[in-house]
Design a binder for these strands. Structure first.
Lengths: 329, 329
DNA sequence: TTGAAAGCGATACCAC
DNA sequence: GTGGTATCGCTTTCAA
């Protein structure tokens, strides 16, 4: 690999001059510029980012921390983040935390060691990790905390919509599947559903689903039908969980949506592929990723930020796990 | 951030000594070691990776290039790669290429600029990118090329199995969905299926599916049923495509697997969630990611490699889109 | 066993 | 306009 020195020698100028044409900073004669550019071409020179980072004390890297890229929700989020950052010339340093505080801490640590200019984190740590005393601009995704910058969807409203749609479609004995309490969006959805159910003329029960994963949900699904065999409406904590429920219900010979209605959360690609396809509360996942990246960019450029939190709207997607009704708003 | 200098001053020694205890290299008295460690503790010092990389001319970063992390096949692959590399203290610099040679080239370029120690690439570029003159150890995933290190599944055998299973389950008019020719594994599967069909007593036809995506496949599915309305067996180029076909078939009122049998490829998580659940040729995706990472690690450590190519076996997963038969092997 | 000093490859300040 | 050089934070000879 050629260095700036080689280029300088080749062009017969100093490294300072080469640096100037490289960064278009300061004056440099048109002719010498030409020479330098020729030398760069000839040597196929490309500046060493590491040396640059060392001097500037910051890189062109951004840390991205997710619970698990294998979860379609997070990979969609990641894509949104990447698409905007990549265009601005930033690169992603990426890690899966598995909701493990130690892993999370380790990644944050190496992010810092590598002098990232910013961090996007979608983790929901049980313990509280030290993001506070990090000088690095950080945006949280799908996770709200009052003191920090964050982008997330309106989970509470989503919960309300889900409960409302379920009730107006005639379910009388509703079961809410509640995600982990420490995961804020999950808690919000639950609260939203509760808001509506508490005021409505229906029975309901609450079942905990510890994790968001399909495997976990599959086990719970069995238990749930044992416990509440006459449930006629289920509000799942997310689409993956809903898929598990759907499978189990079908296995038990229940008719959906006639015996049981089912509403998920997220609208991951899977949801429209299920049969019957899943009615769900759609989060603008890709858009959330984009907005987080844009917010981070502003933070990095030290632009003024109008609001620390960006809350995006959710939307009911009517598919085949809920019954049709007359449109009454 | 404290630097090595600060630590040296605090401990009353030279930076060289600090460096020695940091890297456990060379002699250092037990007592001074204690002092240095105390200073490190006190200042909460952690070495700057960037400076280290600059001197060593290589980082602890590894570049990972994928077509699209949003595709469950690739996110699973990524997870396998990450899980082994992360444990060895390496971090991932990650990018989506979208099968776009320019993007791919750009990422490779920044990987080099950031002095990655290795690259894992799962892209299938139409044009030929310059990996050749890169001195950096590179392992290709899900893509075979004679001169390079690669990990992939036995696509040809997979194609054979798919065709065989389809025939022994009684399909007489089979349609093969053929992925892009320039994607080697897709071509292999196609060839494998052809191997068997050519010798069998059945009719068959071939339909091209340009991309691997669901959206693309959805369009093709319609066309396919128009063109070959009496097909009674479909071998899809992958599970995403199979899902689209399944949906379209159901929409047309076809009965599966009675009217039409369907076999996919990959066994992504989605496949078992479809209804009816998808019979498919399973690739050991996560394992492929792991093996690629392990191979890369060997390459980096300059260990001797017994074989440049690692081919992993595939396996028929019988689910509900194929008919049951007596077990005749 | 330890320290001084020369790099690694870039940037930017200060002279000229 | 251009060049010399200190500097970023670390590793590694080479002497002492």
């Amino acid at each position: 690999m050629a260095t700036i020195k080689d280029v300088a020698k080749e062009a017969g100028v100093s490294v300072a001059t080469v640096s100037r044409v490289l960064n278009e900073t300061g004056y440099v004669h048109e002719d010498t510029k030409k020479m330098v550019e020729a030398a760069i071409q000839k040597l196929n020179y490309s500046p060493n980012e590491v040396a640059r980072s060392l001097y500037k004390r910051e890189s062109r890297l951004i840390g991205l921390l997710l619970p698990d890229i294998t979860n379609p929700f997070f990979s969609e989020l990641a894509r949104g983040v990447e698409d905007v950052l990549q265009k601005q010339g930033f690169r992603l340093l990426f890690g899966n935390s598995d909701e493990d505080p130690e892993k999370e801490q380790a990644y944050i640590h190496t992010f810092i060691q590598n002098q990232v200019v910013g961090i996007v984190s979608a983790t929901n740590p049980a313990g509280k990790i030290n993001y506070e005393n990090i000088a690095i601009p950080t945006v949280f995704l799908d996770r709200a905390s009052d003191e920090e910058y964050a982008v997330y969807a309106d989970g509470r409203e989503g919960g309300r919509i889900a409960a409302h749609e379920m009730i107006r479609r005639g379910s009388k004995k509703i079961t809410i599947l509640k995600g982990p309490t420490y995961i804020r969006p999950a808690q919000d959805r639950f609260q939203g559903a509760l808001d509506v159910l508490a005021q409505a003329d229906v029975e309901f029960s609450v079942v905990k689903t510890d994790a968001f994963s399909y495997q976990e949900a599959q086990k719970r699904a069995k238990g749930m039908f044992d416990l509440y065999p006459d449930t006629d409406g289920i509000i799942a904590s997310n689409d993956l969980v809903a898929a598990a429920i759907l499978h189990e219900a079908l296995r038990l010979g229940k008719s959906i949506p006639d015996d049981i209605q089912l509403i998920g959360f997220d609208d991951i690609p899977l949801s429209s592929l299920l049969f019957p396809s899943l009615s769900t509360i759609k989060q603008p996942v890709y858009e959330m990723g984009k907005q987080a990246a844009q917010l981070l960019l502003k933070l990095i450029k030290k632009e003024t930020i109008s609001e620390q939190h960006i809350q995006l709207p959710v939307q009911f997607i009517e598919r085949q796990t809920t019954r049709k009704v007359e449109d009454d708003g």
